[in-house]
Design a binder for these strands. Structure first.
Lengths: 340, 340
DNA sequence: CTGAAAGCGCTTACAG
DNA sequence: CTGAAAGCGCTTACAG
């Protein structure tokens, strides 16, 4: 393998000059530069990046930790991150944790061991103290999820209020027996959306049958199975608010397979406004998250941290929106009322 | 930042010993080892991995180049890759090209510049000579896509025969006016599947109206739009074979929006057997690719290459399967005939 | 504008 | 079982 000193010899210059041609060409005279470039092309020299990284202490790599690469939701957030990263000369590498905290820790170690210049977390299973300690020493931002009182830059929507909005939509349509399929309850996001659901129910003085809250695992299948459970109840709900669109689609399927129709027999609200939510029938009423913008904003903040700029604000709340489609059987008149 | 020599000093040993404790603990006496580990824990020392990589010329990272991280198909292949990688002590980093050849080249450069020990390509827009040259010097395997005569280890199904099988299914159901929505025609895979379609048509002496072949871009939207075009033809097709499930779903939606019913008025076959294909209504008849296994096999081969083992065979063909569901209106009897 | 030299933080062959 | 020393391939402050 050719190295810089070999190129230098062939071009009759010092290694320092070759280095300059590559990294600061304006410091080298035109003729010398051309001579060096010719040799580089001729022998197809590629600098050894790890050596450069080692020397400069910069990797020009940012790490994104994703809980589930398979998810239509996260892939949109990723796109936002990627675009601003690439535009600023950074490579994005993805760490898929598959919702496993051990894998999450491994990826975080990449950062601690300086294999990346910064990190954006799309999930945080770690506890607050840990995260804050890492954040003190390394550029890091949290996106999608908000951890109460966490002193780390965060970009997300207000999940509690969005979930409240979604539940209230059902209430306004006249439903009183409203169930909720949560995400894994050890995930903050799941608890936040459940909180929103509870707030809405309570503020309208509706009882929450404890059997109406079922824990899913984000998957279509779990939405399907939990809905089957709900429908088998002695006093089954007439509406379901699901943590995400995946599970909402599972809920609709479960209703159909039980001989019920959505929205007539079971109204369903999802969350995320994933592509498929407008393809499936009935089209899902759901909460839109500005996925791309969340990713974009998160990466912009990370860039600032990497460049040593200070961030005055820690918490960035993005705008969500209730998208009313078919799965709750709403009508255009109603749409007016629910706009907030 | 604490470094190895600092730890050494605190533990009253040489840096070499600290290094051994970390990488070859069996070379160090129990007492010394414990003394060093105590210091490491006490000061929370993390080795500087880039320095190690630089020294050992190993990154323990493998790079996967994905054309579209958003795709439900590729994410399953990724899982197969990840699992065997992680089990063998490798980190997987993902390079999303967004179908852009420039981004593909950038990621390949990561390999050439030794930032990864090997690479699996889930797409190959580069030409054969380029790929072979890289493959001679660096561990690399190609998955999902097969390039004729390419001397690089490859794992894929036989796309031509699968596409033929899918088209023949339509023919057996009595269709003669069968359209095909291709992927971008500069992608090998698109040409392969089109070839299978053409072979099936020709071997059954069916004409292919050139307007029956429409080029899509993998997306739901393009499937939708191209189907609208097909249906607007003076002599519209009664069946469509789409390059993938995404576009097949778009085709179904287009039929519905045109007041037609699938499968009665328009039969649709997809490709990939993506999760959503069994959720959407009508359920898609499609070709199953063993996604996870393709990824697994590809990573196993890559590991062999990295370890300097030789691979006797270059071309690994995985088994596909025609999955008959609702979107072509087939019946159980027919299922028997089409099993191959 | 260019070169000589030091040094980034590890690992490993060698010697004892 | 342990240490001294060389060296991986670059970059950069310094000198000229």
């Amino acid at each position: 393998m050719m190295k810089m000193s070999d190129v230098a010899k062939l071009a009759n210059v010092s290694p320092a000059t070759v280095s300059r041609v590559l990294s600061n060409p304006e410091l080298v005279s035109k003729e010398t530069r051309q001579k060096v470039l010719d040799v580089i092309n001729e022998v197809n020299y590629k600098p050894h990046i790890v050596a450069r990284q080692f020397r400069t202490k910069e990797t020009k790599i940012i790490l994104v930790v994703v809980p589930d690469i398979t998810s239509a939701f996260f892939s949109k957030v990723l796109r936002g991150i990627e675009h601003v990263a690439v535009n600023n000369g950074y490579q994005v590498i993805l760490g898929d944790t598959e919702n496993d905290i051990e894998r999450e820790k491994e990826y975080i170690n990449l950062l601690l061991q300086k294999q990346a210049d910064g990190m954006v977390l799309l999930t945080a299973r770690l506890n607050k103290t840990n995260l804050e300690e890492i954040s003190e020493h390394f550029p890091m931002v949290l996106a999608c999820e908000y951890m109460d009182g966490l002193n780390v830059p965060t970009v997300s929507i207000d999940n509690i209020s969005s979930a409240r909005k979604a539940t209230e939509h059902l209430i306004k349509l006249g439903h009183t027996k409203i169930a909720h399929i949560t995400g894994p309850i050890n995930v903050i996001l799941s608890r936040d959306r459940m909180r929103g659901y509870q707030q809405a129910m309570m503020s309208h003085e509706l009882d929450i049958d404890s059997a109406y809250i079922q824990e899913g695992d984000f998957s279509f299948e779990s939405g399907y199975n939990q809905t089957l459970k709900l429908l088998a109840l002695e006093n089954p709900p007439t509406a379901v608010f699901a943590f995400n669109d995946e599970m909402a689609m599972g809920a609709i399927k479960a209703a159909k397979d039980s001989g019920l129709k959505a929205p007539e027999d079971l109204a369903v609200v999802g969350f995320d406004n994933v592509k498929m939510s407008s393809v499936i029938e009935p089209n899902l009423t759901t909460i839109n998250q500005p996925k791309y913008e969340i990713g974009k904003k998160a990466m912009e903040l990370l860039l600032k941290l990497i460049n040593g700029e200070s961030i005055n604000k820690k918490k960035f709340v993005m705008k969500d929106e209730l998208i009313i489609r078919e799965s709750c059987g709403s009508n255009p008149d109603l749409k007016e009322q629910t706009k907030m």
